[in-house]
Amino acid sequence: MLEYSEPVVKLIDEFKRLPGIGQKTAQRLAFHILRMTNVEVERFVAAMQDVKLKIVMCSVCNNLTDVEPCRFCSSTSRDRSIICVIEEPYNLVAVEKTRSYHGLYHVLHGSLSPIRGMGPEDLRLQNLLPRLRPENNDGVEVLEVILATNPTTEGEATASYISRLLKPLGPRVTRIAMGMPVGSDLEYVDEVTMDKALTNRHEM
């Protein structure tokens, strides 16, 4: 016999498919939904359907967007000579928050990881190379590609793979620096980060 009636079990199972949600949380969420009003539930369902209907992947940079091409790619005020390559759409938000980067983006939607079955063909790379040709970039030549993949072994391998791909084509290829978090005390920085920061030190 099921521990709850069938519709409740089905809802719990659906929640459990979501990342980071186990049996207990799924149960709590399901019972929360049971307590919600019909209007609230409809709004929730509509919001989920809306993202699926309205959000598409930008054909130029693979960013998630509700307009095609996305706001960054169609912007006239962004610097089209520089492209920042990132793993996930939410990494874009992190770079954008700095307000000091005004170039374009390219979202890979993943990183190289043989153990997870992720090879180059599983990354959104096919549309990166054509972007380097001025005729595909509003006549602007791409001068620099910044590789801002994560500082993990997978992110490093991805950056290395892409740099080997791009370098023969001409643009300057750079990797973001690894080092000290700003606003923190030296004593709170772990040794690996400190080591990277020392290695990547610069002239003053």
């Binding site: 043989p114 153990i115 391998a157 950056a159 793979y161 080997r164």
Partner: peptide, 27 residues
Amino acid sequence: KQKNQLLHDVSDAEMSIAAARILIEPW
């Protein structure tokens, strides 16, 4: 671990050495 998996995949796919090199060198 990643490289072992990749070597395994590459050997299964019977890829050319040149093509395999491109995949393995980043690791």
